[in-house]
Design a protein around this nucleic acid. Structure first.
Lengths: 206, 206, 206, 206
DNA sequence: AATGAATGAGCATTCATTCAT
DNA sequence: AATGAATGAATGCTCATTCAT
């Protein structure tokens, strides 16, 4: 399995270059998390990282490439964590609970990434002005959750319901749990996750 | 009951001034719904309204005040509609369903407002860079929903759960239902609302 | 006959707006003539005109539109002058001499325009990176001169020669006369023009 | 005769250094010929040469010095060729024709150099913003051509005319011949040169 | 009450140049 | 002798806001 974030079909990035890219990505995450996507100018990110504006342009083709790399690095880590946890789930019900709990567990230590991700998803546009993420990104998530819920119905664990509505609701509930926690740092994220797992389970089981 | 949107402690706005504000707010909603918050410059809103940029600045202290008024006017209308519908609900369960169904019903005819609201909530920042809406705005909504769920527990209809988590989940599910519908215009909003009502009801009842 | 430089199919420009555009065009000509196209940044032009950078963007869609207007205003004036003079020429030989002498006569009072025109012709590029003027612009001039020389051959005044080579040479000789004069302000432009007219006439006549 | 392009009063350049400079000059010519002076950044030239940007700065004091060396190396080669051809010319008329024909002959195989030269002449500026070439460079050429035409008048071959105007016209006609040929690759350069020689000869002879 | 002219700060990006290695 | 990392100034452009009329 190939490492992510390598330039495809080109010479691999040097260690120092990769370190700089990582540093810039980290600075971008912190700035976006703090002031939002729109205010997160390259100047601000550079200042936060203690480097010059030009250096960002030197390492990234443009602001968009930087944003995409933020997403890829962050999103990849989340997916990796959640998938690993879900390997050991035996039933659909257990998978459902594991999904909610494990993503919360991971996020507990990655608050800024979470916020940055949300900002980029909501704001990054392609050259034609349409959202770069958005429909397609969520669609992927919905598909995965639909599979989970469909599986539960096949095993007889879950009642009959519209899997798309369920997936949309699940996704939104988890996202908002994080948003709430970001806004209320003292909120007990794990307790919230357990309550949410209960809630979703009751909504599904016969 | 006092009319909203009056300048507190100042002389009341003239009829013509109020009409202009309403016109500008309407133009802002249409432009934001079409091109998003970031691209919705005052120049663009003015052009859409067929007036000069300067006139917007004349009637509103700044872009932020305009955005806040968009939210208040729109939001007020929604609340008015939903509260009216909920008057006739007999039980907590019925209130829960009515809330989900009536807000969907209202929104079916107000897509642009919905999209504009979402954009403003996601993008409007205070001078310090932090989201203007979010915590405080939602808090009011959460309180209302908590009352609903607490009531259901008092009547014995609902099981024992964390009302804050329930309120947050409820709110997010409804918001995302709309967001999904905005992104997928052919999606059956009313069917989604019925499914969501079922889902929430099952999550709550004993 | 419609005035040039009006926006086609749109409301006509106000007096004050046209005056500003003229002022900006004049400043652009002076700056380009002084420091060349590449160094003639909007900032520099604005400073020279005593206005803000933003105001240029307010009146012109972009740097390109400004440059095109410089060319159109300047070029139009030259063509107008030369054509008027050539009306009264009786023979091809006389037309040839009049062309050289009248353009020199006009240019004597419009040194900066001349230089600016040359800079813009040489440097202005389209979005695809290819010269905006250049082939097509010169082609038009060549065609006109070819007509003149072909006419002289038809009347029997001129010998048999390649009219395209003659047109290219004529055009280059006139351009360089101006360039030399721009570089050597004390040079006698009119004497040069008379010598050049003699020279071209001898090269053509039987 | 001393080799050109040696640093005056300093230790001579090593073989390897001179080779590098030649390589960079060659790359610069190709890049300028292809994309023009303005777009020919050091980064682009370095990439074309397969070396790093820094190396250009190492071998040349700056972009300007590189450009000057491009001109000197290229220009020297042209002069060498033309002078050699003109040795065998017997009369002023023959010298005049030989000059036009031999420079065309040489250029036929050196299109890129020609284009690069034109771009640099048109665009290279001194620190004060004024053209680096132009006046001074052409002066040398004018002097040489004036000698030629003065000689023809002494031998009685040529009529009485202003030798400076003749030199300026001659120089411009040749330059534009090349420019036209660069823009129209299918144009017959040699035929053009013969026509131009005829034209200039007729303009001069009694 | 309303306009259009004008400003100035901020944006992403390009580029020649410098410098430690 | 050569590299690649890094800088900082400059560019065209957008935009909310101000102001005289």
């Amino acid at each position: 399995m190939r490492s992510e974030n390598e330039p495809p079909g080109q010479k691999p990035r040097s260690f120092i270059e990769d370190a700089r890219r990582a540093q810039i990505v980290a600075a971008a995450i912190e700035v976006i998390a703090e002031v939002g996507f729109v205010q997160a100018s390259l100047a601000r990110i550079a200042k936060h990282a203690g480097i010059s504006k030009g250096l960002i342009s030197y390492h990234f083709a443009g602001k968009d490439e930087l944003m995409v790399e933020v997403v890829e690095r962050t999103y990849g880590a989340i997916v990796e964590h959640v998938l690993a946890k879900m390997q050991s789930a035996g039933s659909a019900t257990e998978m459902l609970r594991t999904h909610v709990l494990s993503v919360a567990e991971y996020m507990r230590g990655h608050r800024a990434e979470l916020r940055a991700l949300g900002e980029i998803f909501a704001n990054l546009r392609d050259a034609d002005g349409r959202p770069h993420y958005g429909v397609r990104t969520n669609e992927e998530i919905y598909r995965g959750l639909e599979d989970l819920y469909r599986f539960g119905r096949q095993t007889g664990e879950f009642r009959d319901f519209d899997v798309r509505v369920m997936a949309v609701t699940h996704s939104a509930s988890v996202d908002e749990m994080f948003a709430y926690w970001v806004a209320h740092p003292d909120h007990d994220l794990d307790a919230h996750a357990r309550e949410l797992a209960d809630l979703l389970e009751r909504a599904c089981v016969r």
